[in-house]
Design a protein around this nucleic acid. Structure first.
Lengths: 224, 224
DNA sequence: GGAGCTTATATTGTATACAAAACAAAATGC
DNA sequence: GCATTTTGTTTTGTATACAATATAAGCTCC
């Protein structure tokens, strides 16, 4: 199995976004390297990439840690989403067609299915599926740069929810996703934008200012 | 002089943004390394960082090149700016005060001064100063994430202008910057946003995005 | 027993060594 | 002469070695 830096980065990112790796967990270079059977060189590249995405903090001479967003950062992440997602939505609305609506409905069905499943694995998949709806909309906007910005915002949001989330969050979100897509389908862009902002408000309202959990076991989190 | 990866990254980025490094230029690891008296390790880290910012393309087994945005990418960069900058501007307008206005006016004065100077160095500084006005506004918005997005957009815009720019671009832009700040000062946010969109339109209008990709194939074929 | 210093251990930072791939040039065959 | 193969050189990809720093453990002194 040939593993490169991208593979390691993706594996760690997925673990962070699906909250198998708790914020604050130390990502030792040698540990990660031995898990993937590669040298520290590739691990460092992966960790550096993740630090650009804001998912990992690299402290000089101390090592890399799963990011631990402050409350201020959390607020800024959601503020950014409130500002950017409506304009992306408007852009997407201009280009949306039957095929795109169908694609979004597939995502919603996925969410619905996972919501009815039991178990931790289903919960993690649901978290990812929830973010994927937002990313699918960004994809429809047709702007690769905005899509990348959303990638980062969604990933970091997941981290914030892991830290400060009260309930399992996304449970209340699915209905709102559906309403947004409904509004898009009937070409009511203003309503869709309003619903989107409300949706983001709801996610943020579910957060709490409680301190974080401790780091979890690296190996089990990466499923290795 | 202790040089770390950040320093190298910043130096190369500045060279790209100020257009001393032409798009397509190959950035050999050993060459850059010997230039800074460091090993390839640090150079690789710097190039990887720049590739994440979209200023450098890293091709597997071939090396790193100053990015060479396609026409589509160029259009998407300006589309993103048209969408994001107005919302940033609104956010900034809410927090702006006398001190911030004064700070912006300093930037404008800088632009004015450089505009009246002769020589290539002044032109490069003017390019940078022009972008700095947009970044200063993003800074005032108080959202570090949006500021980072703008950092990337401004830097990549500079690259696009280097490739497709007709005139020395920013010459026509200064007056518009001034008008935007004026509108901000009299708290006419709608006007400021309209001016901002117009400003971005003007920059893009000065580009020659119709013609097939100029000397691109030639330059890369010559590997310069 | 605990604060502060000293030593030991582990981890990161950087350079270098070697392998693999791409590139350029010379040699070969037609 | 032209296309193709072969060889040699350069450049990147990855692992490893060594230096510098931080962390942990042990020790002294009060």
């Amino acid at each position: 199995m040939d593993v490169d830096a991208h593979h390691i980065r993706d594996a760690i990112r997925e673990a962070i976004v699906e909250r198998r790796l708790a914020p604050g967990t130390k990502l030792s270079e040698t540990d990660v390297g031995s898990l993937f059977n590669v040298s520290r060189t590739l691990v460092r590249a992966a960790l550096q990439a993740l630090s650009y995405e804001g998912l990992v903090n690299v402290e000089k001479n101390r090592g890399a840690f799963v990011a631990h967003p402050s409350i201020l950062e959390a607020q800024q992440i959601f503020a950014a989403r409130r500002l950017i997602e409506p304009v992306i939505l408007r852009e997407a609305a201009q280009r949306i067609g039957k095929a795109e609506i169908r694609h979004l409905r597939l995502h919603l069905a996925d969410e619905e299915r996972l919501r009815n499943e039991r178990g931790a694995a289903a919960r993690r998949a649901e978290i990812k599926a929830s973010g994927d709806v937002h990313l699918a909309i960004a994809e429809i906007s047709g702007n690769a740069i905005l899509k990348r910005f959303m990638d980062e915002l969604v990933a970091r949001s997941s981290l914030v929810i892991a830290l400060y989330g009260r309930s399992v969050a996304s449970s209340c979100g699915h209905d709102e996703h559906q309403q947004i897509v409904d509004a898009l389908e009937r070409r009511d862009v203003d309503a869709a934008c309003a619903l989107m902002v409300e949706h983001i408000n709801h996610i943020e309202a579910d957060l709490d200012l409680r301190s974080a959990e401790k780091g979890t076991d690296l190996r089990s989190a990466l499923r290795l």
